[in-house]
Nucleic acid binder design. Structure first.
Length: 104
DNA sequence: GCGCTGACTCCCC
DNA sequence: AGGGGAGCCAGCG
């Protein structure tokens, strides 16, 4: 599993792409929805390998605690993008799933 | 093949 | 709420 055309990767990307604007999902939830239960790390890896200018809404994926799992510039970018689409992100970088969680 | 390293998650304390 | 431990698995040296 690693090339751009890998079917597993495609499923992960498609699932992330289906998260509606203003909602967030956890890595584990994305894995589950993509038919890959227990493969949260793979989702995280996949996100980390995205190209700079990707159109994918990677910022709508956070960890199971509702926290932004990135660090540095990408963490700030993620926070910025989430807030820009109306998602409340607290000072610690946490989103409330009860309010903004993706419920497929 | 081996060990380490994560944009992860549970479970237990 | 926060930390340790175990399970997870693909990539890399």
């Amino acid at each position: 599993m690693d090339r751009p055309d890998d079917p597993v990767r495609q499923r992960i990307l498609a699932t992330v792409d289906s998260i509606p604007r203003g909602r967030v999902a956890s890595y584990g939830q994305v894995a589950l929805e993509a038919g890959l239960p227990g493969r949260a790390r793979l989702v995280g890896r996949t996100m980390s390998e995205l190209a700079e200018g990707t159109k994918l809404a990677w910022h709508r994926v956070v960890n199971a605690a509702g926290r932004i799992s990135t660090s540095g510039a990408s963490a700030r970018e993620q926070r910025r993008r989430l807030r820009a689409e109306g998602v409340a992100v607290d000072a610690r970088g946490r989103v409330d799933f009860a309010v903004h969680g993706w419920r497929p």
